[in-house]
Amino acid sequence: MSKIFALAGVVIKELYRRKDFYVLFVLTALLTLGAGMVNFFHDDKIVRYVKDICLLLIWVSALVISVVTTARQIPAEREARTIFPLLAKPVSRAQVIVGKFLGCWLATGVALVVFYFFFAVVTGSKEHFWPWAAYLEAVWMHWVMLGVVIAMVLLGSIYFAAPSSTSTITIIVVGGILLLGTHLKIIALQQPEPMQFILTLGYFVMPHLEWYDLRDFVVYDMGLVPVRAVALATLYAAVWTGIFLVLAWLGFRRKNLTT
């Protein structure tokens, strides 16, 4: 376990020593503060659009940070050849995969805490209202979802040589699931037969990441999601994370690293 944490530690150090995170955070902060400064009809109590914009930016930033950070992990180890001194030490390839996953996931978690803390401070200062439990649920679900995404990216990064292709593909896939996931079955029913079957199948076998988006509950102050549902969703995400990690390990185990 300490080996896995050692591997994770390197990833976390990498994230906070690179500029990407800060750039995205500053961008989010500026856009949010800018949006918050606009005056609509001399009513300074209007706040939901600010929450909406800020959360959208947080979702985009967090997705970009986690995907881009994860996609380069294994390719960078191979390109810099650090994978060789690493694997020459008593560490298994499975441990490398799990360590990289954990590092990316924890690093993303740290980023999320920073982002949501900013969100809470900015919106709270406007509406004098801090529904901490709802925020906690929203962050947790967001983080759990990014766990699945990170495992997915790790799997992709073993098969695609260029981190940019892995990033692009996963961002499109994840974006597609987030936007269409709920509607896929309705869409399927409107299609002719081979497509209808394929889409329906996709609907049932794909990871339903759209569940983890609780932005509406936060933006519209709609209270809490039942804890039981959050727990079940967490379990579901853990299973998907596990599936992707095992697939990643199976690919990495056979991978010829010398070419």
């Binding site: 150090k13 690179r18 810099a80 050849r81 650090t82 060789f84 001194p85 020459a88």
Partner: peptide, 15 residues
Amino acid sequence: RIGYLPELTYYYKFL
């Protein structure tokens, strides 16, 4: 019980 120095390795440059 071995130590290994590979050729042309660029160690994690941010560490």
